[in-house]
Simulated scan of single mutants.
Amino acid sequence: MSSELSTLTVTMVSVSDTAGGAEAHTVALGQGLRQRDHHVLLYGRCPGWTEQGLDRREIALGPKWSRRTMAAGVLRVPVERHRTRRIADASVYHLQFKREQIALTGPLSRRAPVVWTEHGRWLGGPAGRLLLTGYARAAGNVSRVVCVSAAVADDLAPVIGRDKLIVVPNAIDTARYVAPPAAARAALRERLLPSRFHERRVAILAARLHAAKRHDRAIAAALASGSALMVVGDGPDRTRLERLAAGSADVHFTGHRDDVPDLLAAADLYLYCGAATDGTPTSVLEAAAAGLPIVAFHDDPGTELVPHCGGLLITEPAELSPERAAALDDQRGSGVAYVERRHGRETWLDAYEQVFRECSR
């Protein structure tokens, strides 16, 4: 068998208990590589991984690094490096979170090439500066860094060097998201939306509810436009957001849902809010693939997608007037072709497969 057709063993080391964009990316990559007959194994934890029948091993790493856990996490680094001895040999190792990248790249790179994926912009403030020295040192042992956007690559170029960076935009399974005909959409609205929303313009956001994303802006924009709002997802900021929306029958929180494609298809527009460190938001791609026009805020990451996907950029929530919201009806469906062409799953998998093959030679 030629090297171009040989089977790869891709081992991912990733510990997370939160279902977010990076975790969905990991599961999709594992699924896609397995469907292409490669061996894929996860050491650690990732929501959705075992549910898809993918293989996993425990490695007993501590929690994912954050501002709250970082100090204790740094103290655990020697022990966690020692635990990499439990990880089986592979064609390539794939890491995506700072703890795994900084702490584990060195020992793993002595056994096989290491590839990182960077999902977002560099973390600012004292925490970002604290990480930078260790990150730069670990980058000396990485073979390739896949960045989800050009902006992410620009952040890393002074630290890593352009020769190790490659931009592979996030992708979605476009077959899961459709802009349904009127009759099918009416049936979805009847089945999925609260009855008080059936005759209303319905905005939706589907995301992890984290304070850094400032989803309060979406609530304010929906109310300013006279739209009802479906808030799909869960996270640490949900309680605060529910408190902000208290007393309004126009805002409905669904919690985590597995039928997001159908909920998107039932809505009229998508409200996107991004954290400063976000990369390419898959939520925008999913909404556009479902035919929704996008309303986003100037200077949030990922808003360069909006002109291609149909929609509107605003600075303040009050700018989304009822008239501007109504005008978005004319842009319904305008982003479908763009997402299919630029952010389809197969092209994305081709790029990752090529990176892994080139590194493993």
Results as ranks from 00 to 15, higher is better:
Val92Glu: 03
Gly62Gln: 04
Leu61Lys: 02
Thr69Tyr: 00
Gly73Glu: 01
Met70Val: 14
Ala72Arg: 10
Leu54Met: 11
Asp89Asn: 06
Ile59Gln: 07
Gly53Pro: 08
Leu61Pro: 01
Thr69Glu: 00
Asp55Glu: 15
Arg76Tyr: 05
Leu61Met: 12
Thr84Asn: 03
Gly73Ser: 01
Ala90Asn: 05
Gly53Ser: 12
Val77Gln: 08
Ala90Phe: 04
Gly53Cys: 10
Ala60Tyr: 14
Thr84Lys: 01
Arg85Ala: 11
Arg81Val: 08
Ala60Cys: 14
Ser91Trp: 03
Arg86Gln: 13
Leu75Asn: 07
Leu75Val: 07
Gly73Trp: 00
Thr69Pro: 00
Gln52Met: 15
Arg76Val: 04
Thr50Cys: 15
Arg56Gly: 10
Ala71Pro: 06
Ser66Val: 05
Tyr93Cys: 03
Gln52Ile: 11
Arg86Tyr: 06
Ile59Tyr: 09
Arg76His: 09
Leu61Thr: 05
Arg81Leu: 07
Arg57Pro: 09
Ala71Gln: 09
Arg83Leu: 11
Leu61Ser: 04
Val92Met: 01
Leu75Gly: 13
Arg86Cys: 05
Arg76Thr: 08
Trp65Thr: 02
Val74Asp: 01
Glu80Ala: 03
Gln52Ser: 15
Arg56Phe: 10
Ile87Gly: 03
Ser66Pro: 07
Leu61Asn: 02
Gly62Ile: 01
Arg67Ile: 05
Arg85Ile: 05
Ala90Trp: 04
His82Gly: 10
Thr84Tyr: 03
Pro63Leu: 01
Arg81Ala: 12
Glu58Arg: 13
Leu61Phe: 14
Arg85Ser: 10
Ala88Gly: 05
Gly53Asp: 10
Ala71Phe: 04
Arg56Glu: 15
Arg67Phe: 04
Thr69Asp: 00
Glu80Tyr: 01
Leu75Asp: 06
Thr50Phe: 13
Arg57Thr: 08
Val77Gly: 08
Ser66Ala: 09
Arg83Lys: 12
Asp55Trp: 11
Val79Asp: 12
Glu80His: 00
Arg85Tyr: 07
Ala71Cys: 05
Glu58Ala: 15
Asp55Phe: 13
Glu58Met: 13
Gln52Asp: 15
Ser66Ile: 03
Arg81Cys: 08
Ala90Ile: 03
Thr50Ala: 15
Asp55Ala: 15
Arg68Glu: 14
Ala60Ile: 12
Ala88Asn: 07
Ser66Thr: 11
Ser66Lys: 04
Glu51Phe: 08
Arg67Asn: 09
Asp89Lys: 07
Arg85Asn: 11
Leu75Met: 10
Arg68Tyr: 09
Thr50Gln: 15
Ala88Met: 04
Ala60Val: 13
Ile59Phe: 09
Arg57Trp: 09
Val92Arg: 01
Val92Asn: 02
Arg85Asp: 12
Trp49Asp: 14
Glu51Asn: 14
Ala72Gly: 11
Val74Ala: 04
Glu80Asn: 02
Glu51Met: 10
Asp89Glu: 08
Arg83His: 07
His82Thr: 08
Asp55Val: 12
Ile87Ala: 04
Gly53Trp: 09
Ala90Glu: 07
Ser91Asn: 02
Gly73Leu: 00
Val79Ala: 14
Ala71Leu: 09
Val79Asn: 09
Tyr93Ala: 06
Arg81Gln: 13
Thr69Ala: 00
Val74His: 01
Arg57Phe: 07
Arg83Phe: 06
Ser66Gly: 10
Val74Phe: 07
Arg81Met: 12
Gly62Trp: 00
Ile59Arg: 06
Met70Phe: 14
Gly73Ala: 00
Arg57Asn: 10
Arg81His: 08
Lys64Ala: 13
